[in-house]
Each structure stands twice: as structure tokens, then as C-alpha cells.
Amino acid sequence: MIKVQSLVKEFIQKDGTSFRAVDEVTFDASHNEIVCLLGVNGAGKTTTMRVLSTIFEPNSGKAEVEGYDVVAEADKVRENVGFLSGDTGLYQRLTPREFMTYFGRLYAVPEGMIERRIREMSEILDMDEFLDKKIEFLSSGMKQKVSIARSIIHNPPVMIFDEPTIGLDILTARNIVSFIRECRNQGKCVLFSTHIMREAERLADRIVMIHRGKVLKQGTLEAMREETKLQDLDDIFIYYINQANGELKVVANEF
């Protein structure tokens, strides 16, 4: 599970001023659940996820993964998180098998276990025929499968997906979407970010709307629909933005 409390992350900009990318963000996610961070580009989704995956240290506030603090127990957090983003690169000169073995070893998974996991995932994701071909020769769909397998090689209880479908074609994106569902069905805690409303609508059990570093609104889609009396998530999102801006102006059906 994930627990984020009053999280703040600031960056020093080139002109010397600081900029709050994440501003007092609070939310949580538990097992058996898909939580979606929804927001436009630059809202602070990626920064939040990077704090959760121990790449960034927060300026203040608290973030926990499976009860481990992301700053004090970063090692434990890394062991418990699988991280995947849409633009993750792969080592071109390795084969998928070598690639997965490499990360398995970095996660200190026992050798026999690594082999078993590779076999299992190869079956699930249908990777048998290219398991020993160099990654540079694989199609983007195949590469995406390798990335997925890599993110789960250590069988973590928490999965974080940062804009997982960005830049992918429909067929490849569908692999990811079904993989995210599969993770929840296995009882994992899943956090994913997107700026595509349709994706959030289809996948999320709960939605956390983020805008300019702050949480606009969080809850289930149904609850939001009820509150706003709007059906479309696009409209709901704009409704909350306008509300936050202090202008209760509903821009519905504008297009």
C-alpha cells in the first residue's frame, strides 16, 4: 500500500527561485486497488511518482510504501516497488533474458527464482520466440513486453506506472492496460498516472486529480459524477479546475 501525506517537492530553477512541483499532496492506495493520478502535463504526477520510487527526496511531508518510509528506508521501498513508465529505455545489446536476469540480480532475487520468473512471464506475455534475440532487433510491442516483465521480475506488492501508455500504439497500449488489471487481480496495490481521461475512466478504482502540484479532488468516478451531476470525465475535470480557480463556471459541452 501507498500512503502520501502533505508531500512537498520543490526544485531550484535556473534563475535561482524555487518552484513547487508537488504542493501538500495527500492520498493513499491500498492492495487490490487501482488508483489513478490524473492531471495535465506538468501537473506534478511524475514528480510524485518519482518521490514514491525513491528517485527524488521530498522537501517535506511523508510518503510510505508498504509501511516503509521513502527517505529513511529507501532500500526497502525499492524492493517493494515495480516501476514502469511509457518512455523507459532498454539495453539494446542485451537479450530479454539477460535483461531480466540483470534486474533480477540487482533485486537480489535468487538465481533459481529468476529463471522460474522468466519462464512464467514468458508464458503469460508470449515472449518465448524472442527471449534470446537482442533487444535492438525487437519491435516496439515486444520491447514493451520486456519492460513489463522487467518491472515485475521481483514480484513486488506495489506497482507504479508513470504514463505507461504514452507514445505507444493501440495494440501495445492494450498489453499494458490488461497488465495493470492483472496486477490488481493478483492483489497488488497499483498506482498509475495519465492525462488521458478515457484511460482513467476505464481503469481506475479511484481517481486523484492533480493540478499545479495540488490535489483538486479525489474519490471514485461515481462519487464525482454524483457531486458534479456531469457524466463525462473531461467535464468533471474542468469543473473541478474551475472550482479551484474560484470561478464556478462549468464549461460543459463546449466542443
Partner: peptide
């Protein structure tokens, strides 16, 4: 090179100091 090929992030989130 790892930054350029966007593989560094994967390495940083994995369980290695």
C-alpha cells in the same frame, strides 16, 4: 549514454544503491 537512452531511471528505481 544511459540518460540519453532513458535507461537510467530504471536502474535508479531498482534495488541498488
Amino acid at each position: 549514454g544511459e540518460k540519453e537512452r532513458q535507461t537510467l531511471e530504471t536502474l535508479l528505481v531498482s534495488s541498488v544503491s
